[in-house]
Design a binder for these strands. Sequence first.
DNA 1: TCCCAGAGTTCCTTGAGGGAACCCTAGCAG
DNA 2: CTGCTAGGGTTCCCTCAAGGAACTCTGGGA
Lengths: 150, 150
Amino acid sequence: MQRTDFSKMACSIARTLDVIGEPWSPLILRDVWVGMSRFEQLQADLGISRKVLTERLNHLVEHGVLERRPYDNRPRYEYVLTPKGTDLVDLLMVMVGWGDKYLAGEAGPPVLYRHHACGEIATAELCCANCGKPMHAKDVDVLPGPGSAV
Amino acid sequence: MQRTDFSKMACSIARTLDVIGEPWSPLILRDVWVGMSRFEQLQADLGISRKVLTERLNHLVEHGVLERRPYDNRPRYEYVLTPKGTDLVDLLMVMVGWGDKYLAGEAGPPVLYRHHACGEIATAELCCANCGKPMHAKDVDVLPGPGSAV
DNA sequence: TCCCAGAGTTCCTTGAGGGAACCCTAGCAG
DNA sequence: CTGCTAGGGTTCCCTCAAGGAACTCTGGGA
């Protein structure tokens, strides 16, 4: 939890950060995405403190990003992405794209994506949902919306 | 700075978080993006501690995301996005998209984007750079790449 | 000469992250 | 029916980063 509460700001970035902006949260999501779903697995893979892992998982469950579900008669649980959480993977894919481009170095990208639709190894790009053309920082004007603070 | 150093992990998400994963960093980037470039402006708009703002700006400049440039004969500086930083705005736009969808509430989205190419208010979507079709979590297989730790 | 604004720096206090040890709940083996 | 084990957490203490307020430094301008 940040010291300053971002959730009250009139900004979707700040509100998103309130959900997954804490340290480790995106990495937990990544692991769950690629199939690592149990407490012990996550703790061992990330090397995160058990206390912090507990806090993060609870926070993500509270916000509807993960679902905690039993997988045994014994008190055993696994964490899976909800639809809301699955949509957050978009964010991870964009982070991967930027990291691959600027930080991967000589070794090249650690993971690759094969796109089902075309069968090729490909990267993700931001496009306009309306016209389908590329949509980056320089391709848009920013305008105040209905939920603006002003 | 997180206690645990993410920059050594063989993961582009972790390495990206090492650059902009600290609290406030994405919000600083957002402000710079929409034209707020000076220390006093940022401090007043965000309500961030001056000490932390200094740390964050230095960190972002060191990593080549922002450039610190003088704008007066007096020792006055402004911060502007580098091309590397401009590419990070993609990440912000995806965060905005997710926040708008799940967290905006009744008031609606705080900001809107007008896409130059089509002139319409639009949202950003992730597409395959190869075939141009939508590319979300369920549309890809994840494969180990050349920079994989294994 | 004094005042001012921008851009930091210094100092103190509090509380979150790291790490290790501990606990609790089934199953199962003897 | 006792003890062992594994998963999934709690508890505790220590350190260091975030908050916040006060202070500094630089170069105009009145």
